[in-house]
Design a protein around this nucleic acid. Structure first.
Length: 477
RNA sequence: GAGGACGUAGCUCAGUGGUAGAGCAACGGUCUUUUAAACCGUGGGCCGAGGGUUCGAGCCCCUCCGUCCUCACCA
């Protein structure tokens, strides 16, 4: 048990004894702190303002106190003195760091020049029973920062800024797409067959139906059914779940944008991808030249288009020379024995080429085997009409000219299912047999894009509550 | 899954085998323009959990839990 907790409970009781609630109700008339503070000038000096927020610092001089009060928009100093507050002074003596208060006061400057609200009235809105993290080291422990994100957001202003940017990123994305005539839809999270990507799914169980379902690993399949149904320009922004490892670029649940554009193709998606990312960078990151860790990323379009095989050659590998490639993998401690030829190529690409990409590159014309839902390049059947957009060594986007031949689609899905009919999505194939228009489609990893736009090195820094093991309950309290 | 690092007060951290510490936060006091306010005083610990070695363990050994990093996995 924490004695500070007990002390604060005692305080709350004293506040109650003064006839006031330590946990107040609705508070009207508060203006955002940031704009109020920055409005200081001849117009506003001496005028009365009301703000509300959390007390983040408390400098007491007995019969006068300086407070820092913070809301989502900023921070302002409040000066409270006994003779100005009169009757509410007794109550105010029980206000401390971490409490929520509402303040009415006149705007001015102290003699050290700090913009200050000289309080005429203070209301206690919520008494906090637990303390805030320490005031200048803040909350450092990454485990506590992620488990108790609410404290992280209070203690580390940059964290709040990151998540505000992420929020704006999502709304800008919707604005951008809506303005171009794309319709947002919602499709099921629980699937009978986990399709649209190759990843291990999470399994869940429906009791009344007594059967298992998979949490979706991609949005692709239902969105393509909507293409068949006549949603010609459609997108979904949603959570997908992959039951795989966790590291700085992977969280088991993450957010994807997937979008389909009937009558378009890969080129349509390149323009969209470039345009969208450029728009977001301008709106969220303030420009196209972004610091990212030690690097600087230049997002200026047009992004270079490079074929997969050409990139391998540029890095000194002959895509046709499997022996050379396999030797290189072994040198890197990777065993290629069970890999198909295309898997070796993909592995080399991931090892050698991908980490070296800093500025955005559209990598195109990958081996067709990697992508059962992608159309072959017309006249080049071994190559997928696909791009992956890489930035800062990360894949942030993956797009196809979509395969709309239902006969080939069935063959490729059945081949992938390797004879297990239960793994073939017959309803998807049936939909395609009704005629899916030619289309371009794209997926964008929202979390990774957020990492780049907010200059954060780990996906956990852009997900409010990243997956952690359950804390040892004995460690609580 | 493998290797490494870490886990001590609410927070940030000292403490390499001999009486558990500091700063901030909290509480009491002085103080009506401070900026990490200052000063005086007080309280606060299953040292992640369990086992072992030892006269004696926060410290050494083992197991477990958790976090981070690197690698592996990851169309």
């Amino acid at each position: 048990m924490s004695s500070e907790f007990d002390e604060r409970v005692r305080r709350a009781g004293q506040i109650g004894a003064l006839g006031s609630s330590p946990w107040g109700n609705r508070f009207d008339g508060a203006q955002p702190i940031g704009p109020v503070a920055s409005s200081f000038g001849v117009e506003t000096e001496g005028k009365s303002f009301t703000v509300a927020g959390r007390v983040t610092a408390h400098r007491s001089f007995g019969k006068a106190v300086f407070l820092d009060v913070r809301d989502r928009t900023g921070k302002v100093q409040v000066y409270a003195r006994q003779d100005a507050l009169r009757s509410s002074w007794e109550l105010f003596k029980h206000v401390g760091i971490a409490d929520w208060i509402g303040v009415t006061g006149t705007l001015g400057k102290t003699r050290t020049g700090e913009i200050t609200l000289f309080a005429t009235e203070i209301a206690l809105l919520t008494k906090a029973l637990r303390p805030l993290p320490e005031k200048w080291h803040g909350l450092q422990d990454p485990e506590l920062r992620h488990r108790r994100r609410y404290l992280d957001l209070i203690a580390n202003p940059k964290v709040l800024e990151t998540f505000q940017k992420r929020s704006r990123m999502l709304s800008e994305m919707r604005r951008f797409l809506d303005a171009r005539g794309y319709l947002e839809v919602e499709t099921p999270v629980m699937h009978s067959i986990a399709g649209g990507a190759a990843a291990r799914p999470f399994v869940t169980h429906h009791n009344a139906l007594d059967r298992d379902f998979f949490l979706r690993i991609a949005l692709e399949i239902p969105l393509k059914k909507l293409l068949v149904g006549g949603f010609e320009k459609v997108y979904e922004i949603g959570r997908v779940f992959r039951n795989e490892g966790i590291d700085t670029r992977h969280n088991p649940e993450f957010t994807m944008l997937e979008l389909y554009h009937a009558l378009g193709d890969l080129r349509t998606m390149m323009e969209l991808c470039e345009g969208l990312v450029v728009h977001l960078a301008k709106e969220i990151a303030g420009g196209l030249t972004l610091p990212y860790g030690e690097k600087v990323i230049d997002l200026a379009p047009p992004w270079p288009r490079k074929e997969f095989y050409d990139l391998l050659r540029e890095h000194g590998f002959d895509p046709a020379d499997q022996e050379q490639l396999r030797t290189e993998l072994r040198k890197r401690g990777i065993d290629p024995a069970k890999m198909d030829a295309w898997e070796v190529l993909d592995e080399i690409f991931g090892e050698v080429v991908q980490p070296q990409i800093v500025n955005p590159v559209f990598v195109t014309a990958q081996p067709i085997e990697m992508t059962p839902l992608c159309r072959r390049i017309d006249g080049r059947p071994a190559h997928a009409d696909r791009f992956e957009a890489y930035v800062a060594g990360m894949e942030i986007s993956n797009a196809y000219t979509e395969l709309n031949d239902p006969i080939e689609q069935r063959a490729r899905l059945e081949e992938q299912a390797a004879g297990d009919a239960s793994k073939t999505d017959h309803d998807f194939l049936r939909a395609m047999e009704h005629g899916m228009p030619p289309a371009g489609g794209i997926g964008v990893g929202i979390d990774r894009l957020a990492m780049i736009l907010t200059n954060n090195p780990s996906i956990r820094e852009v997900i409010l509550f990243p997956l952690l093991r359950e804390a040892d309950s004995g460690a609580e309290e």
